[in-house]
Computed example of a mutant assay.
Amino acid sequence: MAYSFTKMHGLGNDFIVIDGMTSPIDLSSDDVSAMCDRHRGIGADGVIIVRPGQGDGFMDYRNADGSLAQMCGNGVRVTAKFLVDRGYLPPGRDSLRIGTRAGLKEVRFETAGGRLSRATVTMGQPILDPAAIPVHAPVDSDHGGVPYVGALMIPTPWCPATVTCVSMGNPHAVWFVDLESMPDELVRGDRLDSLDLSAIGPYLESHTVFPEKANIEFVTVEPDGLHMRVYERGVGETLACGTGACAVLVAAYLTGRTGPSSAVHLPGGTLHIDYREDGVHMTGPASTVFHGTWE
Rank of each mutant, 00 (worst) to 15 (best):
residue 34 A to K: 15
residue 58 F to H: 14
residue 96 L to F: 11
residue 263 A to H: 13
residue 177 V to S: 02
residue 187 V to R: 02
residue 241 C to V: 10
residue 243 T to V: 07
residue 252 A to T: 04
residue 201 G to V: 10
residue 176 F to K: 05
residue 183 P to V: 01
residue 253 Y to R: 09
residue 71 M to R: 05
residue 86 R to L: 02
residue 27 L to C: 13
residue 50 V to W: 10
residue 40 R to K: 02
residue 179 L to Y: 06
residue 198 S to V: 05
residue 162 T to K: 11
residue 290 F to C: 10
residue 163 V to Q: 03
residue 102 A to E: 00
residue 289 V to D: 15
residue 289 V to Q: 12
residue 121 V to T: 11
residue 154 I to A: 08
residue 280 V to K: 01
residue 75 G to V: 06
residue 199 A to G: 12
residue 89 L to Y: 04
residue 267 P to R: 08
residue 88 Y to P: 00
residue 28 S to G: 14
residue 35 M to Q: 07
residue 37 D to T: 01
residue 166 V to P: 03
residue 259 G to Q: 08
residue 109 F to C: 01
residue 56 D to M: 01
residue 62 R to I: 01
residue 188 R to I: 09
residue 58 F to W: 13
residue 271 L to I: 09
residue 208 T to E: 15
residue 89 L to A: 05
residue 70 Q to S: 14
residue 92 G to K: 07
residue 292 G to K: 05
residue 30 D to M: 12
residue 11 L to H: 08
residue 199 A to R: 15
residue 263 A to P: 00
residue 234 G to L: 04
residue 45 D to Y: 08
residue 145 G to E: 01
residue 184 D to E: 14
residue 66 G to R: 07
residue 171 P to Y: 08
residue 123 M to I: 02
residue 187 V to C: 13
residue 68 L to I: 14
residue 53 G to M: 12
residue 193 D to H: 12
residue 290 F to R: 02
residue 212 E to D: 12
residue 293 T to S: 12
residue 139 V to S: 02
residue 80 A to E: 05
residue 169 G to Y: 10
residue 73 G to L: 07
residue 125 Q to Y: 12
residue 255 T to I: 05
residue 179 L to W: 03
residue 252 A to I: 01
residue 8 M to E: 01
residue 6 T to R: 15
residue 212 E to N: 09
residue 111 T to P: 06
residue 130 P to E: 06
residue 38 R to A: 06
residue 180 E to W: 03
residue 120 T to I: 09
residue 4 S to Y: 07
residue 175 W to D: 13
residue 110 E to H: 13
residue 188 R to F: 03
residue 162 T to L: 00
residue 192 L to W: 09
residue 15 F to Q: 04
residue 249 L to K: 07
residue 34 A to P: 00
residue 127 I to T: 14
residue 115 R to Y: 04
residue 187 V to G: 02
residue 128 L to M: 09
residue 125 Q to H: 15
residue 70 Q to I: 00
residue 250 V to S: 06
residue 38 R to D: 07
residue 17 V to I: 00
residue 220 T to E: 03
residue 194 S to T: 14
residue 77 R to E: 02
residue 25 I to L: 13
residue 75 G to P: 02
residue 60 D to S: 05
residue 131 A to Q: 15
residue 86 R to W: 03
residue 13 N to G: 01
residue 142 D to Q: 11
residue 178 D to R: 14
